[in-house]
Design a protein around this nucleic acid. Sequence first.
DNA 1: TAATATAACTGGTCAGACCATAATACCAAT
DNA 2: ATTGGTATTATGGTCTGACCAGTTATATTA
Lengths: 238, 238
Amino acid sequence: MFVPVKNKKVYQHVIEQIQNMVMTGALEKGDKLPSERELVEQLGVSRASIREAIRALEMIGLVESRQGEGNFIGGDINSSFFEPLSVMFMLNGGKSEDVLELRRVIEVEAAALAAGKITEAEKAELAALLNDLIEAGDEQESAKADMALHYAIARMSGNYLILILLNTISSLMESFIRDARGMILREERKRDVLLQEHKKICDSIIQENPEASAQAMRAHLKTINETMKELQNQQTGQ
Amino acid sequence: MFVPVKNKKVYQHVIEQIQNMVMTGALEKGDKLPSERELVEQLGVSRASIREAIRALEMIGLVESRQGEGNFIGGDINSSFFEPLSVMFMLNGGKSEDVLELRRVIEVEAAALAAGKITEAEKAELAALLNDLIEAGDEQESAKADMALHYAIARMSGNYLILILLNTISSLMESFIRDARGMILREERKRDVLLQEHKKICDSIIQENPEASAQAMRAHLKTINETMKELQNQQTGQ
DNA sequence: TAATATAACTGGTCAGACCATAATACCAAT
DNA sequence: ATTGGTATTATGGTCTGACCAGTTATATTA
């Protein structure tokens, strides 16, 4: 099962071995790794190295450690995986426009893809989500419904990469644009505009019209991005 | 109702402290961290915990460890940012079509963006790269020139995220599709078609026509993806 | 002065101990 | 038989101290 380690950085070898076992399907989501003490024997390295490797894998969400139970293969993309990345992006002088732009690229295409392969059940789900948004009472509910809608569309694109990428982008936005989501929604005058845009997106997708869906999403994000820029300028300008 | 009692691991605290110092600007790219033994004193924890924290931060590219020198902040976002996605992707049963699809999304939009903000100097560079491709002798040269052209376009999009995302997608493709790049180029009969497509892309970008650029790139990737599927089916079908 | 050897750091690895938590088996009381 | 406690055991979490392996600075020497 586990092949003994050779030279170079020991913990890197351990990381690679576990990663490879996931890539080849030998380890699957939820599987329990051998205990750290077992791995020490099987790999012929110290427990410290084993643990350093596990910490690294834990940081990217590939492994989840539970004291008293064990280490498990975890696939929870939404967990702590994304937060640290925002720090990285910041370090490299990333521009907030880049994030918004990438989001536009992804979501526009996600809408088109969703329109192309949506099922009847998903149509109903989309309609329900839109309804949630319409009937949302306070800002918090509205923001939550808004987010749920966008994620649903990404999921319906049928492309898992797009979904997790949108996840990453969202967390990036959160760290770059203070209170990004609330920003828009607080603009009461825009509320109807946004609602109409959402409706148009959903309708286009339900009608299985990729071009119209992409166009609607493009228009929607244009509104959002422009509003964001305005509000940001207000904040930084005063 | 009842919320779990706080139970933070030591190494998590260390991770947070370092992250915060980066966020607040106390630590910047290239800065050297205190030595592990100093951190032991300053933070009052064991070196093992310090190292586990550093391993985690190293995995996401926030820290770079160099034996004999020290631990440093930063490094290239390239290697770290989206790289773990490949494993996570596999873990969640990602399909190879998803990768190709995402590549199409990214590159099509990159072409459009490049057309919208290309400079005169970049136009010359693009023309030169196209020429390299035309005059490429053997397959290897051709593949290299091809790749250089695509990356140049991504770079000229002016969006750093798009560039590194393309990087990641390429490595994802490598792991999913055996010898992806060579596959196409080995098809002699397609060579002229691909060359024409590349020319059309470059021309459109140089003419600063986003729509035409996107369309040309879309057509190009359609050719590539279809050819790839054919060849893959040949491989798996026999 | 320049080359070289030495010392003093730094991260990398290991071994073993002990603590904290969770699962399990077992026993006792009802 | 169910419940509740208790000891056992296996697990991850933490600490200590030692030594190895590179790098850099310093002292030594030709």
